[in-house]
Amino acid sequence: MAEQPVVEVRGISKHFGKGPTRVDALRGVSLDVYPGTVIGLKGPSGSGKSTLLNVIGCILEPSSGSMRLNGELVYDGKWLRADLRGLRLEKIGFIFQSHNLLPFLNAWENIAVTRILAGASPAQARIRAVELLTYLGIERRKDAMPGELSGGEAQRVAIARALANDPRIILADEPTAALDSQRAATVMDMLRKVAAEHRSAVIVVTHDEKIFDRFDHIYSLRDGALEPPAGAAAATPVLQ
């Protein structure tokens, strides 16, 4: 394979608590995600999906293993980078189950703020925000407050926000859970489009069988361990 994986997870384990209350949320998980691919994470509740996503998002410190993001070794038994927030800001886009838009900013401001945090001027940030809203087909809603947006619109604004800084990695925890199947399909198609056009790695946690055919791979977690790839397009990794 010519291209380096954007996400390389090697033998990552994570446990919570000690002694009799110890929970092994992840047990030696290894996973590669290549540029331009969209992978799914499924598994029963409590199987460790969110934990894995939080570890890859550098929000949660693993207990052991190593991890390389965008070619940079960021974890090897300990964090190797002090400025994890800076890393998140520049390299990782998050999409949440409930869109998590800031309630006091309107649609374009929600996107622009991410860009401004990364150092862009307010004018540049605004231009970029409107560009992204246009790209996702909701520029006419740019001045709406989050409370005025429908579920599908809000989720698209959230996707736009995740894309604001052109991240190499996009992490989504059940992004379609609150949407009907048609909207869910639209959101997945957008993520596929972004992955293809920006050469990003997209990891989506989902229970939603209706969208399983939109993934390049689907990984299944059970009791904190990955089962062999399964699902619609699992056999043949899609390369662009």
Partner: peptide
């Protein structure tokens, strides 16, 4: 609370 958690998650530094 949630907005602040989101800002931190996105990568806003503490001083913000």
């Amino acid at each position: 609370k949630k907005a602040i958690a989101t800002l931190k998650l996105i990568g806003a530094p503490d001083r913000r």
